[in-house]
């Protein structure tokens, strides 16, 4: 604190010099560890400015938490092993129940019989087509639901009269099982694809819209104020602040929307059966039932479950994890 008796504003040039000086002297001071005995005055000056930078660097180092990722083997043991054990346990119980003849074979087949039934479908060469029929329908329905649900959600979240008018209906619709729409859809559209898509949309759109509304509601008001101060108003505010801030809630809405799409799709395929509609997983299940083929029925249920879980794990879970990790909401 030597040469600054003057007010900082009048000593603008000096001040600037004093603060740049340490930056240039830092490396030499470090490099010449052996020859410490340099000119005293120069060192003192360097130390004064250097002090703060060094202190700050130290504070930063002390306060920074290192977020190292857990190694893969540990991760596998912690995340993959428990569900695997659970599945093995369930299969074991199932096999035990079969071995004890709790129910006749045609009502309770063994896991192996179900496997064989699925293998038979596989060898017929139709099973992939059946799965694809359902998955492609589910995906298309979900995509349309996304396009409808997103603007709807934004409207409900941001426009107060709209919210008052349809907000409660939208959340009420979520608790209505979408199977309830199937008879109505059949009367409207007959046994066509339109029936199936109508049911899927009625199931998924409210979930997606509600997810976005919840996401917007949970935005920290401070972020909206900060956005305003930075000049992000109107559409720029929506694009740069509102939408990214609402993303976590929106993604959980999408996840739920997919689950609802898939559920509604299976209900629709199961009830609305017609040769023109092609064979999806729901239809496979219905075929099994009509032949009293319990292994096939259980196999179809298993496939429906696997596709639902698979899409969630392969698509939604990684996206959600990425978003949450970036925000420090996940370890």
């Amino acid at each position: 604190m030597a040469s600054t008796e003057t007010q900082p504003k009048t000593a603008g040039a000096e001040g600037a010099e004093a603060t740049t000086a340490p930056a240039t002297t830092v490396p030499t001071a470090v490099e010449t560890g052996a020859e410490r005995a340099e000119t005293g005055a120069e060192r003192a000056e360097a130390a004064a400015g250097n002090d703060l930078a060094g202190l700050e660097a130290g504070l930063d180092a002390l306060d920074t938490r290192t977020t190292d990722r857990t190694p893969l083997p540990v991760l596998l043991r912690r995340k993959a092993l428990p569900p695997l054990v659970a599945v093995v346990l369930v299969l074991g119980l199932w096999q035990a129940a079969f071995a004890l003849h709790l129910k006749p074979d045609y009502q309770l087949p063994s896991p192996l019989m179900v496997w064989d039934a699925l293998a038979e479908e596989w060898y017929k060469g139709t099973i992939l087509g059946v799965i694809w029929q359902s998955v492609s329908r589910g995906a298309l329905g979900f995509a349309v639901a996304l396009l409808v649900g997103t603007p709807l959600g934004l409207l409900v979240a941001r426009v107060r009269p709209v919210r008052a008018a349809i907000g409660p209906i939208l959340s009420g619709l979520q608790s209505l099982p979408s199977v309830a729409w199937v008879p109505a859809a059949i009367i409207w559209f007959g046994l066509t694809d339109a029936t199936i898509y109508a049911v899927v949309l009625l199931g998924a759109v409210p979930s997606i819209a509600n997810g976005l509304v919840a996401g917007v509601d949970r935005i920290d008001p401070l972020h909206l104020r900060a956005g305003k101060v930075l000049g992000a108003t109107g559409l720029r505010g929506i694009r740069h602040v509102l939408l990214p801030a609402a993303l976590p809630g929106y993604i959980s809405g999408l996840k739920q929307g997919w689950a609802f799409s898939w559920r509604s799709l299976m209900a629709a395929e199961l009830i609305a059966t017609s040769p023109e509609l092609g064979v999806g997983l729901g239809r496979l299940l219905e075929t099994g039932r009509s032949y009293q083929d319990m292994p096939l029925v259980l196999g179809a249920i298993l496939l429906i479950l696997l596709v639902g879980i698979g899409i969630e794990l392969l698509i939604f879970a990684p996206v959600e994890r990425r978003v949450l990790r970036h925000r420090g909401l996940l370890r």
């Binding site: 104020r225 990214p244 970036h326």
Partner: peptide
Amino acid sequence: ALFPWLTAGKNIELALKLR
């Protein structure tokens, strides 16, 4: 009040962009 969906640098860049 930094935006948690952006990096430190991108937070600053957003202010620059809006300016």
